[in-house]
Amino acid sequence: MHLSRPARVALRVAACLGFAVVYVPLALVLLNSFSTDRSASWPPDGLTLHWWSVAWDNAGARSALWVSVKAGLGATAVAVVLGTLIAFAVARHRFFGRDTVSFVVVLPIALPGIVTGIALNSAFSTVLEPLGIGLGMFTVVVGHATFCIVVVFNNVVARLRRTSGSYEEAAMDLGAHTFRAFVDVTFPMVRSSLLAGALLAFALSFDEIVVTTFTAGPGVETLPIWIFNNMTRPQQAPVVNVLAAVLVLLSVIPIYIAQRLSADTAASSRV
């Protein structure tokens, strides 16, 4: 599509404004984490690494970081297993209600987080508490897995739909059983998509706060919840800026790797 020069300029200006709205606040958080001032003053009086060492020595912050990592790894593991199995069922088999299954799997990512959190809290209270299982790490992992499954499913099913099932059929015609055909043929084809989905699932779980609030229970505090609980305390403001910067960086890394993997997968599928 050919655009006039004024239209191209207008689109570029609009794009720059949009990126500025998103990324300038993030850059300010990162800069404030190095500021010598306890308040978010502008411009900063100077730069220092002092608050990073203070944040590292904060036992509550370190504990919250570890809780977030454990919850993310647990939710990612569940999402990889269930999301991959559902993707293979939808992409490789025909059965009644297949489209309905796809819709039900994808729906949680579109629901408001507060609705999902309230529903899960009610379900856990009704089903698990009579069995002696209260809100804790287990319920956080289950809650996060409900929306992490979506990204794994979408990545794997997209790759499978671009890959003919004749490869597995040829392997089995040559004597390979189902598991051997999966290991030698299918898994190498979906490996990058699966890894990309797992990285995105971990990133989603790591910075989730709304669903976590309803499923964590007492004694389970993830890093986003710790930041939210301490951001109004003046003495903790510099530490909150540091942890917010860490949260951004730890979320960017898996998303960037997943984007690169998805781009490489798309390029290889066109070859």
Rank of each mutant, 00 (worst) to 15 (best):
R8D: 02
I86K: 14
V78I: 08
L194M: 14
V104W: 13
P44E: 01
V29F: 00
T116Q: 11
L174D: 07
F103R: 15
Y256I: 02
V242E: 05
T215H: 00
T146C: 07
M231G: 01
Y23C: 07
E208D: 08
N229F: 00
A203K: 12
A7T: 14
T146F: 08
A15P: 10
E208C: 10
T76Q: 08
V105A: 09
D173M: 11
V239F: 00
V239G: 02
P43A: 05
G219A: 00
S192V: 02
I225L: 12
L131R: 14
L131V: 09
T76D: 02
A196K: 15
P44A: 04
P130M: 03
I227W: 04
V210A: 06
W51V: 01
V151A: 04
V142P: 09
D184S: 15
A79K: 15
V21H: 06
L47W: 14
G60H: 03
V157G: 02
P43L: 05
V157W: 03
I114N: 12
S262F: 10
T146D: 04
A171M: 05
W51L: 00
A158P: 11
G18I: 00
S205G: 11
L49M: 12
G197F: 03
V106R: 15
L85T: 08
A196V: 06
S193I: 04
V210Q: 05
V152C: 06
G134Y: 00
A181S: 14
A77M: 00
R5N: 13
D99M: 03
P130L: 01
A110K: 08
T116A: 10
L65A: 13
R94H: 13
F19Y: 13
F179Y: 13
L128D: 03
F88I: 07
W52H: 14
H93T: 14
S41M: 07
V80F: 08
T36H: 05
L135F: 08
V9H: 11
V142H: 05
V246C: 12
I149C: 07
L250K: 07
T186D: 11
P218L: 00
P25V: 06
V141F: 01
A15G: 12
V54Q: 13
A40S: 07
F206I: 07
A110F: 08
I209T: 11
L47S: 14
F138S: 15
N241W: 00
V242G: 12
N241H: 09
W56N: 04
S164I: 02
N241L: 00
A176P: 15
